[in-house]
Amino acid sequence: MKPMQHTITVLVENKPGVLARVSSLFARRGFNIESLAVSVTDDPTMSRMTIVVLGDDSTLDQINKQTNKLIDVIRVIDYSEVPILDRELAMIKVAAENSARAEIMQIVDIFHAKIIDISPATFTVEVTGNTDKVDAIERLLEPFGIKEMVRTGKIAIARGTHTAIS
């Protein structure tokens, strides 16, 4: 079976060392992490991880079960089956010579992105969106010369009334 990208959400105890437990498990069992985003939830005793993994269905099944077994893991939610909203944030520092400025501003506009910093030679662009959208603006800005870029991991939430904490 072909490896596919899957997005899973892991609710964990907000305790020191929990990230190490999860990442050690992934490393040890040979699961590939494409991206990882962690932050505390509205309940300060809980953290939420969004992990994008690469693997076939049986790997995903093992990832879910093995992760669930960790004592500090409260829940693992596999988002393969439900419609989700997912977002990434990127900040892109792009070369912006006088002649290029107008064109870059147009791209930024079309993508509903923002220019959040300007210097005589560069723009820093902030963009949020799903992975495809961030990839697309990156590709379009590439020809101008990307000086530096930073991207968060993906975060995800289910559409509709469905919640992770229930």
Binding site: S58, D61, Q62, K65, Q66, N68, K69
Partner: peptide, 11 residues
């Protein structure tokens, strides 16, 4: 007793 053992090597 361990769900993770199910289908780990033999389905």
């Amino acid at each position: 007793i361990d769900a993770a053992e199910v289908a780990k090597t033999v389905t």
